[in-house]
Design a protein around this nucleic acid. Structure first.
Length: 666
RNA sequence: GCGCCCGUAGCUCAGCUGGAUAGAGCGACUGACUACGAAUCAGUAGGCCGGAGGUUCGAAUCCUUCCGGGCGCACCA
């Protein structure tokens, strides 16, 4: 509702300026006044035009207002302050527009986009940092879908990297295990932890410890021993990359088993994927060879004959100023002098595939089954029948901010190849890491060096085995929630309580990860994450439950109330001091599409989180001031019930976008 | 050395493309439950928006510079 009125006013102002002053203003600044008393929309346009028109701002404002004429949806315009034009909405019309559900569903906008998120190295259990990534990515997917886009969700799997190699080294040389042993161990872990709440014996947990142990092993021997161990590490890595040997087989077993665990962990949060492209296929299907030819042909890559990069194929970094004839020592190496390709090179090939520009495709086979769809994984030779992935118009890579340089290199390469449209629709959805507060680290029993104890936060490190595992955190949240639910829901059985507790716990976790804007470091602390009061997911869920309880006792349904609402004259209930907070609730409810648009344009899901919280807050305020069920005026009671129904509809919808369920009770 | 991010209330964070008295939550202090279930609400205290210049009718927001903190800048993945 708000978005439509905002656009309508903007267009009207534009045409007035055109007609009256012969001015073509590109976009009219429209904002929300600081107080509802001043109206619902405002523009400082007269202040801006004062200089060019050489008139006092208030005079200009007056002239504009007198030419605005009547505008559907608006009640009046007035001049305030130094020359603001404030618009008051026709409240009754606004309320009915909001209540009328038509036009709320997404209009398919035809864009096919791809969101890549999670992308955890498949060599250890997921931790809280990975949760932030997956929750941000999954929420953004939901936002794009709400806006009518067709979205595929990818989770890139680096199954041939040095991190997997380290765990392989651990199994081979620290544990002395063969491929058959590892296979048996995985089967044992899966059998043991199947249907078990306790994940301590799960394979990804086991790898978490082994990975930390191996990383230590590399540096804990004598100098010669360490050199030999490092050599072993790179031999192992190369054997995995090459494939077709027992080392590679172990790597495949590990990465597949850990990946399954990751998918299970994420499914607990309602996070699902469509496709899992793996590095092994990018290597073995020679994506790079094709990309290399394209990069040479377009001149993005050139062979360096001089300087420190002599013998390499390199590309100019974005923003670099290179003088002709001089050697660009700062150029990014894509192909090493020994002929092997770097990480960025492989990533360029992969991104050409994403946009359908490579001319080669993966093989596909089914990997994981969700209730309503399949998740596919890349293979060299796959099933004949499969959906088509890749070839999209826009991509979003949810990758932490530390990788902004390599991401910029890939974008630069696409642009250099002439794929400017693709480069423009390549978004590095960057976010800051989740770190631990020193206190939290000490509580977890980690050894925190003296010099780190005064820091605001300490980075988690898989290599050191330092961090909070995702499943542990979820378990802890669920048990803390269950304690509260047990106190309140004495009339419900264990299964119901468990379900409610899980909904609340996941809501708390997802909201916690979404309330911060992306480039703020989250200093993780159990006290904050386990909080269910104030600006939290459960606070919003509680507002939902309150509305549901009202309707349960009122003997009617939100749908029935809203259906009947169309024929009610709401105007009498929207005037006067007493009505301001009620109108505030409706107005907030009507801002949904504005906030969605803003959240997508800025790639910032936190806006939606904030919106849901504010609506819940305004509702709670309304709830305390206006007692619905005891209202004696029948017409007013219907109006108040409609208000509650709208809050329910909006909160359930927006919480759904955030991946947070709306419990029936709590 | 170069690049990116951050510095707002005791703590954790918002602050829309520069705009009208800078907002939340937590914590502190006062109050409100035989109930539309208080996982709630109302109220009080608390801020030269890191410092200094500049642009502008107007700056927490833009520019310059300095201070303080974080992260990147490999023929590692």
């Amino acid at each position: 509702m708000y978005l439509e009125l905002k656009n309508r006013l903007g267009a009207q102002l534009k045409s007035v300026l055109q007609a009256k002053y012969d001015l073509a203003v590109e976009s009219i600044p429209l904002e929300t006044p600081p107080d509802l008393k001043m109206g619902e929309l405002a523009t400082p346009i007269a202040l801006q035009l004062a200089r060019t028109l050489r008139k006092a701002p208030r005079v200009i404002a007056q002239e504009i207002v007198s030419s605005l004429g009547p505008l559907p949806g608006f009640a009046s315009f007035e001049i305030a302050g130094a020359g603001y034009i404030n618009a008051r909405l026709d409240r009754a019309a606004g309320v009915h527009a909001i209540a009328d559900a038509s036009g709320i569903g997404p209009a398919a906008d035809g864009v096919h986009s791809l969101v890549e998120h999670t992308s955890i190295n498949p060599n250890k259990a997921a931790h809280i940092g990975h949760l932030r990534n997956a929750i941000l990515g999954d929420t953004f997917v939901r936002l794009l879908r709400a806006a009518g886009q067709r979205v595929t969700v990818q989770n890139y799997i680096d199954n041939t990297g040095v991190q997997v190699a380290d765990v392989v080294v651990g199994f081979l040389y620290l544990e002395g295990k063969s491929a058959a042993d590892v296979r048996a161990l995985i089967a044992e872990c899966e059998a043991r932890s199947a249907g078990q709440a306790d994940k301590s014996g799960a394979f990804d947990y086991l790898c978490w410890n082994l990975y930390a142990r191996t990383s230590q092993w590399y540096v804990s021997g004598t100098e010669e021993e360490n050199a030999a161990r490092k050599k072993l590490r790179y031999e192992t890595l190369h054997a995995i990359e090459h494939g077709g040997n027992e080392t590679a087989e172990i790597a495949e077993l590990i990465s597949t088993a850990v990946l399954k665990r990751h998918l299970e962990t994420m499914l607990r949060l309602g996070i699902e994927y469509d496709f899992l492209p793996r590095e092994s296929e990018i290597l073995h299907l020679n994506f790079w060879a094709l990309a290399f030819e394209l990069l040479k042909k377009t001149g993005v890559l050139y062979f360096e004959n001089e300087g420190k990069n002599k013998g390499c194929w390199v590309m100019t970094r974005p923003g670099a100023d290179v003088t002709d004839g001089e050697t660009d020592e700062d150029a990014k190496v894509i192909v090493r002098s020994n002929g092997t390709v770097t990480y960025v090179g492989k990533d360029i090939a992969y991104h050409l595939w994403k946009f359908g520009l490579l001319g080669r495709d993966f093989g596909y086979r089914k990997f994981f089954t969700y209730p309503d769809h399949e998740c596919w994984i890349s293979t060299e030779e796959g099933e004949a029948e499969h959906p088509h992935f890749g070839g999209v118009q826009a991509i979003y890579n949810v990758i932490d901010s530390r990788q902004s340089d390599p991401q910029a290199n890939v974008i630069q390469a696409l642009r250099g190849m002439g794929h400017t449209a693709e480069a423009d629709h390549y978004t590095h959805f960057s976010y800051e890491m989740v770190a631990l507060t020193p206190r939290c680290a000490l509580d977890l029993g980690y050894d925190v060096p003296e010099e780190d104890r005064s820091r605001a936060y300490i980075e988690v490190s898989g290599r050191k085995g330092f961090g909070v595992k995702a499943d542990d955190l979820i378990d802890k949240l669920i048990s803390a929630t269950l304690e509260e639910v047990n106190k309140r829901q004495t009339g419900r059985d264990q299964a119901e309580r468990g379900q409610i507790a899980a909904q609340i716990a996941i809501g708390a976790l997802r909201y916690f990860m979404l309330k911060y804007t992306r480039n703020s470091v989250i200093a993780f602390d159990f006290k904050d994450a386990l909080s269910f009061e104030g600006e939290t997911g459960p606070y919003i869920q509680y507002a939902v439950v309150r509305v549901r309880n009202i309707f349960r006792k009122a003997g009617t349904t939100p749908e029935a109330v809203l259906a009947e609402f169309a024929s009610i004259d709401a105007a009498p209930f929207l005037v006067g001091e007493d009505a301001e907070d009620i109108w505030a609730v409706w107005l907030r409810a009507g801002r949904r599409s504005t906030v969605l648009e803003q959240g997508i344009a800025t790639s910032e899901p936190a806006y939606l989180a904030k919106h849901a919280f504010q609506l819940a807050q305004e509702f709670n305020n309304f709830y305390h001031r206006h007692h619905i069920l005891t209202e004696e005026n029948a017409a007013r009671k219907r109006f108040l019930l409609a208000t509650a129904a709208i809050v329910l509809r909006e909160l359930v919808t927006v919480l759904g976008w955030l991946g947070i369920e709306s419990p029936e009770a709590m």
